[in-house]
Write a protein that binds this DNA or RNA. Structure first.
Lengths: 194, 194
DNA sequence: ATCATATGATAGAATGATCTATCATTATAT
DNA sequence: ATATAATGATAGATCATTCTATCATATGAT
């Protein structure tokens, strides 16, 4: 009995978080009332499921980070696949852009230690792959792995924004990110990879 | 008589805007009271110089855009200098990063038409140079000039943040941006330009 | 059918921020 | 020195938002 109910509650919380994500994507300044309305519930019920606005955002961020982490975990890092790792990461991550983009814009979250810690932990394997690729000689060694990680991350965010404003087609977004990241914008007669 | 006074008023306004910039760099959520305190004036006086918080931000943004515009105007776009244009732009812009960075983070400003228009107008010459370089064959033509402009802009913003957190030395920031923009992160035996 | 639980609507307390109004004080120009 | 203008401190009006409390209603299990 309690089992059936608690599962329902979990589902409802998830539905609320999904709705919150949806409206916040379009209106980052949406109030708690806006969110409750959009989720089709009363403001009182919203507060029954979520402690506070701050906690709501923390939960959204942690959920997003979890999703990214699971995606990264599913991508093989074997020797044979490692060269394709970063392209695969970008390909897999692009579809989730809209759901993550608005969180990154939120300044408050960038001060939350719990979130920063979780984010750093999630990105660690990616950073390790970058270092491996540097040692292998396929990524330049005269830039820190952290810088490269940030550039990749930033290009992803830029692209998500560009997709949302319609300046970049979603289908070509991943290719654009990878191409820009690896080769830059200089015309190169030797650039036969495309 | 009125002349002397009005000049003083202009200066004071500038001093206030400078102070606002300084505190907002460190605390983007600073209230009007915080700003007045930091500027060493009363809240009433602040409102005598500035119509509203919104207008204050608009003024700060327009001022920043003006500064960037003046910098861009001073850089020659002759045929002989055009290859050095983008590196020069980055070199000249890096020192102003901290004063502009916080404005970009502000979501509200990205909805203001006046500012978006001014920004687009300022960046137009830079975009034209990019297109010229594309036609010249020194920048790849399979990416839109707008995308390249955005990438450059984004890398600048990233770098400003990295400089502020101490992850990148201010002196090497410009080189890092240009190098990343033009060549990407792929190890390249033929990359003799550095 | 009944009882426990969940929900929605509403009112409102508490908070925080922006902006105005007022007035005594200070600075400035002539 | 005096008149004019600018300033600071303060109080408070206004507004928006978050969050709580309450109660009547709806849902759901047994």
């Amino acid at each position: 009995m309690s089992n059936g109910r608690s599962v329902t509650k979990e589902n409802k919380l998830n539905a609320i978080l999904d709705a919150a994500t949806e409206i916040l994507v379009n209106k980052p300044t949406a109030s708690m009332n806006d969110i409750a309305d959009y989720a089709g519930i009363g403001i009182a019920t919203l507060h029954r499921y979520v402690e506070s606005r701050e906690q709501l955002f923390v939960q959204l961020a942690l959920r997003a980070i979890t999703v990214v982490g699971e995606i990264l975990d599913q991508i093989p890092t074997n020797d044979e696949h490692i060269e394709a790792y970063i392209p695969t990461v970008v390909e897999e991550l692009i579809p989730y852009g809209d759901k993550i983009h608005f969180l990154i814009q939120d300044n408050q979250l960038y001060c939350n230690e719990e979130i920063l810690k979780a984010e750093a932990k999630i990105l660690e394997p990616l950073r390790e792959v970058i270092e491996t690729l540097q040692q292998r000689g396929s990524i330049r060694q005269d830039m820190s792995s952290e810088w490269i990680l940030h550039v990749l991350y930033t290009l992803l965010i830029l692209t998500w924004g560009q997709v949302q404003t319609g300046h970049v087609a979603k289908r070509s977004a991943a290719k654009l990110v990878i191409d820009t990241l690896f080769h830059g914008v200089k015309a190169n007669a030797a650039a036969s990879s495309r």
